[in-house]
């Protein structure tokens, strides 16, 4: 954090350095992690479409990776997948 005191803050509590969301790693909220099963995947990209956190990366029309820095573990990808190519597994602590 670059601010040290209230005197450093911009008036009106505005945030000038935008976007700020990439700095906010929401991945540590999750208790379950998506486990991707490539053999079952048909790359229909429904998971990519439905992911509320844009945490599924696609390259050349194919699933590339699950970005666990931002995946909150909601499981929408797993429930939307018609091929059962995603399983939600308990996070190991």
């Amino acid at each position: 954090m670059k601010f040290k005191s209230w005197k450093d803050l911009p008036e009106g509590a505005i945030v000038r350095d935008v976007p700020t969301s990439p700095e906010f790693k929401t991945g540590d909220w999750k208790s379950r992690t998506p486990k991707y099963i490539p053999e079952k995947c048909t790359h229909d990209l429904l998971c990519w479409l439905y992911c509320p956190d844009s945490a599924i990366h696609v390259k050349d029309g194919k699933i590339e990776k699950f970005d666990l820095d931002y995946c909150k573990g909601c499981g929408i990808c797993a429930s939307i997948c018609p091929q059962d190519a995603i399983e939600m597994v308990e996070e190991e602590v």
Partner: peptide, 10 residues
């Protein structure tokens, strides 16, 4: 030119 966020959680 100068995008900002207003009313963020604080």
């Amino acid at each position: 030119e100068k995008p900002i966020t207003i009313g963020p959680l604080d």
